[in-house]
Design a protein around this nucleic acid. Structure first.
Lengths: 353, 353
DNA sequence: CTGAAAGCGCTTACAG
DNA sequence: CTGAAAGCGCTTACAG
């Protein structure tokens, strides 16, 4: 033991960034062991004798020691950080996915760095760059273009798992967007609609493009020409505010008998616009969403939409990541989840014209 | 220049955690300058001559260099990380707050580590411990008890800003919960309700406790006895699932003429339960929520609720943090935002009994 | 199982 | 403005 006096216990002060925190050094001194032993107690407790371990653990507690991940990361190459890049954390669908991810990772000592792309490739690039410099152990991403910049993360400890779309590397969850959109448009066509507005995100976004393919396919299969049936509207962000604005514009220029939205938030905006304008849904115009977020069942009218299992997506993706399926040199794993149309009250036959 | 051959350009590989990335060393060599100069180009560009700077920047680009925050953090004591601890990222209210925070921090090269407490002190402690070990520069927190464990973060670079409740240290945003709940209960009492169920979170959570105080105060001011009027129901997590369950139980045991919920998600659950049971809102039972999240206006019936400016809360809190208001030795700053009752269609007079 | 030494990749004074 | 040296706080081999 050295002749250094015990410091007063400063509980909870440690960690990088705090003013001169308690370090492993202090713990080692107090417990009368070497630095390596403290590190082992922290990272490989089974390698340390029980008596020594208890002594070190007591010292850690009494000193209020909180290790610095940054320092550890430098040598161990583990940051304890997982990046989550989604289109919009404010969208209940993605918020639910996040909940699922959290529920799996919360007791694994992994922290989540989250960010929203809002369909902007520049934002996505910035976010991924930031995550790279933070040295995340793994990445969960819903890519918004085909740049595949995120594939680099497959080389990291936990690799990369895609929350959407098909991927070339790492693991992923596929939700068949073509099929989901196909179900939705087929429903509207069956009801007799022949003038349908499709409010979608940017065509460069994979899942937006796929949903459009499904819509076009459905129209084609009905023996119709998309040019005669479909009014395409593109919004840059898929929020209720943009849905509201798009709908306000829409009523000015045309009178579709149905509006199909690429997500429920857009549909919410359209519904709000319709209500304010005195349009009856589905009497005057039918409305169909996508996602089936938790509130749409209680809307007036209850929204017809395509269900996607948000919470489950988060859970499955996080589990894949933990399992190591996202690494480049593991056999790649793919979960296929099916979207399913839920018919409620917002869709009905077109008004007799 | 050394005789080291140029490596093939491995774009996007750098950063800790990647397999042997490109380091400042390589950049310095390629640009023919010293390590310190590279660091200056990265952190204090104005201190470097323009010609040298361009040369270094080119080397960075060509090498695909991505710095390691962890290494930098060790010496500079800046992690570029901000912690955000909220009750539930899956709740649209908090999701909107997050959106606000993101919008302010996204171009400041700060990454957000987020976590949900779900009103559990253990979860909060774990999250804060994790954030401390990650060395976050600052913390945004909606505390769920009075432990004040989060006050330690006031010593960090950016300090701590509370997203809820009053705080003893750092900066904070106060939303007058007593007042908000008071407005809500007063509205119901005025309508003539005398049997009101109040579904609230755990009493140990400050903002839950405050809302209850407001409710009790309103009842007292009306010259009534809370014991005669109020049915208290406590849920541990304030989700629609818990609201649904609580309501299902409620109809079994009693027949309140109104239900007041501590947030909109609970109210959504109650509404769903009422609909399934064939109860008319507000004909059979009035319903009032709290938060005014974006979808409640479109519910059937549109929900009467207490508005809180979620997005703005996020923006104001993030700006305070950037301004340094959260540090222990800065003059503490407080924003006072007012909640406001929005009367819609879910509340009306009690049924004639 | 324990302990002294080296080193992770940067930034920071400090001397030129 | 530039460059060599020290050091941030850990973890990791490696010798005992």
């Amino acid at each position: 033991m050295n002749d250094v006096p015990d410091q007063p216990d400063i509980v909870g002060e440690g960690g990088a960034g705090a003013a001169r925190g308690v370090g492993v050094r202090d713990v080692a001194r107090k417990a009368g062991v070497s630095l390596g032993t403290v590190s082992n107690v922290l990272n490989n407790p089974e390698k340390v004798g029980e008596r020594t371990r208890t002594r070190v653990e007591r010292a850690i507690r009494e000193l209020g020691f909180v290790g610095s991940r940054a320092a550890g990361q430098l040598r161990s190459r583990r940051s304890g950080l997982v990046g989550v890049v989604v289109p919009d954390v404010g969208n209940p669908y993605w918020a639910a996915v996040l909940r699922g991810v959290e529920s799996v990772l919360e007791d694994r000592d992994l922290a989540l760095i989250v960010g929203s792309t809002h369909q902007s490739p520049q934002r996505q690039e910035r976010l991924l760059r930031g995550l790279a410099s933070q040295g995340v152990d793994g990445l969960l991403v819903a890519p918004i273009d085909d740049d595949r910049q995120w594939e680099d993360f497959a080389d990291r400890f936990l690799g990369v798992v895609a929350l959407e779309s098909d991927v070339g590397v790492g693991a992923g969850i596929s939700l068949d967007n073509v099929d989901g959109a196909h179900q939705a448009i087929a429903h509207l066509l069956e009801l007799g609609h022949r003038s349908i507005c499709f409010i979608n995100g940017p065509g460069r976004v994979p899942w937006c493009a796929e949903r459009r393919v499904g819509v076009l396919a459905g129209i084609g299969e009905a023996g119709l020409n998309p040019d005669d049936v479909l009014i395409d509207v593109e919004v840059s962000d898929l929020t209720s505010a943009e849905g509201l604005r798009a709908a306000d514009d829409l009523w000015q220029s045309s009178r579709p008998t149905a509006v199909l939205c690429a997500n429920d938030l857009l549909a919410l905006g359209v519904l709000l616009s319709a209500q304010r304008r005195g349009l009856d849904v589905p009497g005057d115009v039918s409305l169909v969403g996508y996602d089936d977020v938790e509130f749409v069942e209680a809307l007036r009218p209850a929204l017809t939409t395509v269900h996607q299992p948000s919470f489950e997506v988060g859970i499955v993706a996080a589990e894949m990541l933990l399992r190591g399926s996202g690494s480049r040199h593991t056999r790649s794993e793919h979960a296929l989840l099916s979207p399913q149309l839920i018919v409620r009250q917002s869709s009905g036959p077109p008004p007799r014209g």
